[in-house]
């Protein structure tokens, strides 16, 4: 689920509010997004993929994590490279090549083509 919005990195572009398919965010009084309906989060990582500032972190768990969890430790997420890692992995963002272009996976059968998705 969405667990973290970095107020330090957020540029208040509203993108996450717009793209979230299950409408989890609202715009807060200060213009930054707030997680209003976390229980509606379907853990699809789309907000993170679409955040141009790498300001969001979606934990892989489909239930909320306690306050002390790694998912709320912004410094840890930055240090370990997890913050913004999905966007990097799919090659989105200025100067990057869409990862689709190099998505040549293994072939699951001897005669089959390589898996590309």
């Amino acid at each position: 689920m969405i667990e973290l919005i970095s107020t330090q990195q957020c540029i208040a572009c509203d993108k996450c509010i717009l793209v979230c398919p299950t409408n989890v965010f609202d715009r807060g009084a200060d213009g930054l997004p707030v997680i209003s309906r976390q229980s509606d989060c379907q853990t699809c990582f789309q907000c993170e993929a679409n955040c141009p500032a790498d300001a969001l972190f979606v934990a892989p768990h489909t239930h909320p994590l306690p306050e002390a969890s790694f998912a709320h430790d912004e410094e840890h997420l930055r240090r370990t490279g997890l913050l913004g890692s999905y966007r990097r992995d799919i090659g989105w963002g200025r100067g990057r090549t869409p990862a689709a272009a190099r998505a040549v996976g293994p072939a699951l059968s001897p005669s089959g083509p390589p898996l590309i998705s």
Partner: peptide, 15 residues
């Protein structure tokens, strides 16, 4: 090769 084909598959494990 699996990482190249499905970056989203590894999101869960990496995290």
């Amino acid at each position: 090769a699996m990482r190249l084909a499905q970056p989203n598959f590894f999101l869960t494990f990496d995290r």
